[in-house]
Write a protein that binds this DNA or RNA. Structure first.
Ligand SMILES: [Mn+2]
Ligand SMILES: [Mn+2]
Ligand SMILES: [Zn+2]
Ligand SMILES: [Zn+2]
Lengths: 138, 138
DNA sequence: CCGCTCGTCTGGAACTATTCTAAATCTCGT
DNA sequence: ACGAGATTTAGAATAGTTCCAGACGAGCGG
């Protein structure tokens, strides 16, 4: 999904973040894919466009965007953290064949809504991780 | 829960694993706690008993036990993987206050009823991770 | 438009978690 | 008890991420 840079800059400003080239580039890239890229993927993709973005900056930017709620990070077993500009609640399917991380429609199970487990422990957010096989891998 | 070493050895043999002191020690420790220890926790706990178990062996053993289905590993955001000898399906609550990982009784929620999502993707296992506050933290 | 102030970016070093290596040791079937 | 092959070990190597201190530049007040 191609979003023009002006909208992205508006998003950054709206969250009180300074508008910088690295931030716009990272956010644009993450918004353009549903592949849940790693920090390294982000660095590679952006530097392929002629820019030079240091590894440390990739992490800096990912952290500010995450703190601002524009991006969500997730840790999958073994390996690098992955990032998602799709911040509306949803679950993930980790394909055991190709390693891809795919989206799964949101379901609340009535838990987050109540905010409390039957035994009284309180719940802020929940995430379901499915270990299975994606459509591409049949 | 204290399980005697003979039963543990039986478990190892039943899964076709050779019975070694490190394996028995690691399995006994994991079976005795519900705290979901990290590899480092395991090493520390076992070496406190006078044994000397190398870091590499901790990982070797955790891997064999995991492959054998006697232990389950889980990755929590940021930080070391955690291990659980409680292998029956259940969910986890990650306390945002103290960092503890607590068990939550299993529920299937009717997702992937027959191991298949409504859209056809197949699911092997699923685990719900709740981000909330444990009872100790009120 | 200019200059100042911080927030941000950078390369590289440091750090943490995990894996690899090759040699020593041990388990268990025979 | 023997030997083959699995397991353990210390240490080096790797992967992912964070830290650092200096250079840079976004955006505000003038
Ligand atoms: Mn997603
Ligand atoms: Mn558990
Ligand atoms: Zn796949
Ligand atoms: Zn707690």
């Amino acid at each position: 999904m191609r979003i023009d840079d002006e909208s992205l800059k508006g998003l950054l400003r709206a969250r009180g973040l300074r508008v910088t080239e690295p931030r716009v580039a990272v956010l644009a890239y993450l918004a353009s894919t549903d592949r849940h890229p790693t920090a390294e993927d982000v660095e590679t993709a952006i530097n392929a466009n002629g820019q030079v973005l240091s590894r440390a900056s990739v992490y800096n930017v990912l952290h500010s965007l995450t703190r601002a709620g524009l991006v969500a990070g997730m840790s999958v077993t073994d390996g690098a953290a992955r990032y998602d500009a799709h911040v509306a609640p949803h679950h993930h399917l980790l394909c055991r064949t190709c390693g891809r991380v795919e989206d799964v429609p949101w379901q609340d199970f009535g838990i987050a809504e109540r905010g409390v487990l039957p035994d009284g422990r309180s719940v802020r957010t929940l995430a379901l991780t499915l270990d299975g096989v994606c459509n591409a891998c049949c």
